[in-house]
Simulated scan of single mutants.
Amino acid sequence: MTTLSRPGHATGFWFVALAFASLMAFGTLPTPLWPLYQARDHFGPTQVTIAFAVMVAGAAISFGALGHLSDRFGRRRIIAPALVVGIGAALVLAAWPTLPGLIVGRVLTGIAVGLMASTATAYLTDLHRAAHPDRAGSGVPMLTSTVANLGGLALGPLLAGILAQWLPAPLVTSYVLLAGVMAGLLVLVLSTPETVDRLGGAGAARPSRFALRPGAARLFGAAAAVGFFAFALMGFFSSLGAIVVRGQLGITSTFVVGLAPFTAFAASAAAQILLGKAPQRRLLVAGSGLFPVGLAVTAAALYHPTLGWFLTGAALAGAGAGLLFKAAATQTVLAADPASRAGVLAVFFIIAYAGMGLPSIAFSIVIRYAALAPTMVGFGAVLALGTIAAVVTTIRRIR
Rank of each mutant, 00 (worst) to 15 (best):
A232P: 06
A270N: 05
V92P: 03
A65E: 11
P45T: 15
W14K: 05
L188K: 06
S239T: 11
V147S: 07
P157K: 06
I162F: 13
G227Q: 03
T173H: 08
A381R: 07
I87G: 06
T393A: 15
Q165A: 15
L163M: 14
A117E: 11
V293T: 11
F379E: 11
G184I: 11
F228A: 08
G289A: 12
T332Q: 12
L259T: 12
L290E: 00
I243S: 12
A260D: 03
M55Q: 14
G322T: 00
I61W: 13
L190F: 09
T119S: 14
I111G: 02
P35V: 15
L69F: 09
A222T: 01
A336H: 03
V347D: 08
V172K: 07
H42W: 06
A327E: 05
A205V: 14
F52E: 05
P359Q: 03
T298E: 01
V92Y: 02
V285I: 08
L199D: 15
A25H: 11
L233E: 01
T98D: 13
G101E: 05
A278F: 02
T28W: 01
A21V: 09
D71W: 00
R198W: 03
L33G: 10
A80S: 14
T195G: 10
S364Y: 01
L127G: 07
P45N: 14
A342Q: 07
L275N: 04
A169Y: 08
A346S: 15
A222E: 08
T330Y: 05
L385A: 15
A373G: 09
V366E: 04
I361K: 04
L153C: 09
A299K: 00
R135W: 01
W166M: 05
A224C: 13
A223W: 04
A179S: 06
D41G: 05
M24K: 10
V392D: 11
T263W: 00
F265A: 13
T28A: 15
T146Y: 06
M142P: 04
G67A: 00
G88V: 04
V56G: 01
V140K: 03
L102K: 11
G8W: 13
L307I: 10
G258P: 11
A65W: 14
T109C: 14
N149Q: 09
A179M: 01
A90R: 05
A183S: 12
I388G: 08
A230E: 04
I103M: 13
V107F: 14
L284N: 09
R40L: 12
S340A: 14
F231E: 04
A381P: 10
L290D: 02
H42M: 10
I79T: 12
A148F: 03
V84R: 08
S174C: 04
R76N: 02
L219P: 03
A317W: 01
F363V: 15
G86T: 10
A352N: 13
L69E: 06
F13M: 02
A296S: 07
L159T: 15
T192K: 11
L124E: 04
S191Y: 12
F262C: 01
F349K: 11
D134T: 10
F348H: 13
L99H: 02
A264I: 03
A319P: 05
G250A: 09
G86C: 08
R76H: 06
G313F: 00
V189S: 08
R135G: 02
T121L: 08
G156V: 05
D197A: 15
A230C: 07
A267Q: 09
A160P: 02
